[in-house]
Design a protein around this nucleic acid. Sequence first.
DNA 1: GCGGATGTGGTAATCGTTTACCATCGCGGG
DNA 2: CCCGCGATGGTAAACGATTACCACATCCGC
Lengths: 341, 341
Amino acid sequence: MASTIREVATAAGVSVATVSRVVSGSDHRVSEGTRRRVRAVVARLRYQPNLVARGLKSRVTHTIGLIVPDISNPFYPAIARGIEDVANDAGLAVLLCNTYEDLAKERSYLTLLRKRMVDGLIFATVSANTGHLRMLRRQGVPVVLIARAPEGVGIDAVLVDNRRGGREATEHLLRLGHSRIAFIGPHTHPVERDRLAGYKDALRAAGLRPEPALLGDGGLSAEGGAAAAASLLRRRVRFSAVVACNDLMAIGAMEELRAKGRRLPEDVAVVGFDDITFASLVEPQLTTVAQPKYRMGRLAMERMMELLNGGDRRPRRLVLDPALVVRASCGASGAGGRGAS
Amino acid sequence: MASTIREVATAAGVSVATVSRVVSGSDHRVSEGTRRRVRAVVARLRYQPNLVARGLKSRVTHTIGLIVPDISNPFYPAIARGIEDVANDAGLAVLLCNTYEDLAKERSYLTLLRKRMVDGLIFATVSANTGHLRMLRRQGVPVVLIARAPEGVGIDAVLVDNRRGGREATEHLLRLGHSRIAFIGPHTHPVERDRLAGYKDALRAAGLRPEPALLGDGGLSAEGGAAAAASLLRRRVRFSAVVACNDLMAIGAMEELRAKGRRLPEDVAVVGFDDITFASLVEPQLTTVAQPKYRMGRLAMERMMELLNGGDRRPRRLVLDPALVVRASCGASGAGGRGAS
DNA sequence: GCGGATGTGGTAATCGTTTACCATCGCGGG
DNA sequence: CCCGCGATGGTAAACGATTACCACATCCGC
């Protein structure tokens, strides 16, 4: 169907080597005349080099694998976009893989992508389980972790300072006069533990003691947030503010709180994490700790390019600053404090 | 680094052909004994077939390209998930491409993917411009269009009946007593024109005349919705309800309307389109015309598998029914009508 | 006239598979 | 005893590129 380098060669009356030299442009050893002649035939035959063949021979496929927990969590598309934009400019393609937080799936994608000879891997790993990460490192596959990055594995990573983010969210509520502040989130992931640690840091710095009763457990989804809020209410815990582990949970919790008759932000103030697009579209608009998602994607891919082009291989953790975005979900400054004990 | 079929062959004391036969499983002509011996060596050496080489020889790469306007529009991740789930079960990988509604980018991705020898293409095309679609068809590349599908190009497609969706949204508002119903959306895409046509159908069926003044122009984003609503207000058009071309626009319009002092749904009722996750998370919860996004993704990929496995090649348009999801953004039944002229 | 640099382009091996075709063996039938 | 056949497994030619190596011509200085 598509024409091959051999057809171009015979049509132009030269050898395949010459065609390859002209097309790939890497080798100057062709006279201007031949070059023009070959180019003309290439255009006439609409020759497109077969990237699979090229990949086999040259051992670089110009493809990277992107492994995320779930592309339908709005946090990830923004990252994917950043990655894809940079990759596309560099002529690389991106293979998308969803793990649904399943370690087995993550592992199977890893071997699949190796079989496909991808040049590198960018991923948000599901777990603190670092066995397979270490194996990748040993195998020398370029890897950049994004958003979630267990420490101490010696692998490049791009993420925000989650502990600091958790602290800033909590400090904001403290400044507004709140003292009974709940934290909702899962307790399993390192990322979430960091945010929780930041929350506790802030409380202690304000002279408050973190109370286990103020912790709500729930998955990283709107349903998880609703469930966590419901459990807080069911246990009749007194609280006037909530720090949520991500925006999805915050939004779910807001739904649930409102359904149970709490006014927002008058009765309960809420802070989220991530600053997904919808944070500014819910009512009240959500105050949240922003992660520069698109930029993180770009940075991860740019670092990947360095790795691929033989740059400095020593692993580097790029820890960005989160930024508190104040909107309406915590009320106006100085309005809080009704729930103080 | 990774071991090759040749290494396995010598280690097992057989030829590469035999190893290939055992590993690919396609050829029975190997005795049980040799088979076991080869398998043992494969396991010991952790042999993984190189899919690039296999792709070159067999001319099937087990890869499909997914081209979407923008993965960060929450409509697409759901589709992508459906596609990816089916693809993964079948051992296919998905290359993700964002066109940002740019026809030139779409074209360049098309040639890139052909160079990469993808087995098929699933995509939401940016435009009614069908030249490149026809070319694909001529080249015999399996293609399934999704969500956006110009008619008459003779290419498989999976989408909802947009005209009917537009009609049902409008009928819902009419039933609630509204008669001055605005429609906001871009007027360029076929999809949006269909929804607009459905809107007009419903008005005419109710004995009303569509008024150009009630049309608001804006892009398919929250900002576009806000802009369209703002233009409606600026022009002092009287309206008590809005049909938005998608949920993002609906949500943006709601923001804008509220900012300008309109109460929702008391002063203005709003219906969206798509039923993205956030439709049920905004306040008031958005009444919308749902597209079965995940299912559309699955169906498109399943159809792709048929095409790849040599099933019936005659193009088939799979037109699904949209489903009106009634939530709070139009108020309770029978409460409308304040804006009647 | 000769050695060697330089510029140009061809030959063929290679990447790691798949698979068409052939070779060998054991066996049963005529 | 010979022939044909089924079962098994090896040989080698692809797939479509890249590139090391070689060949040849031209030209320079001596």
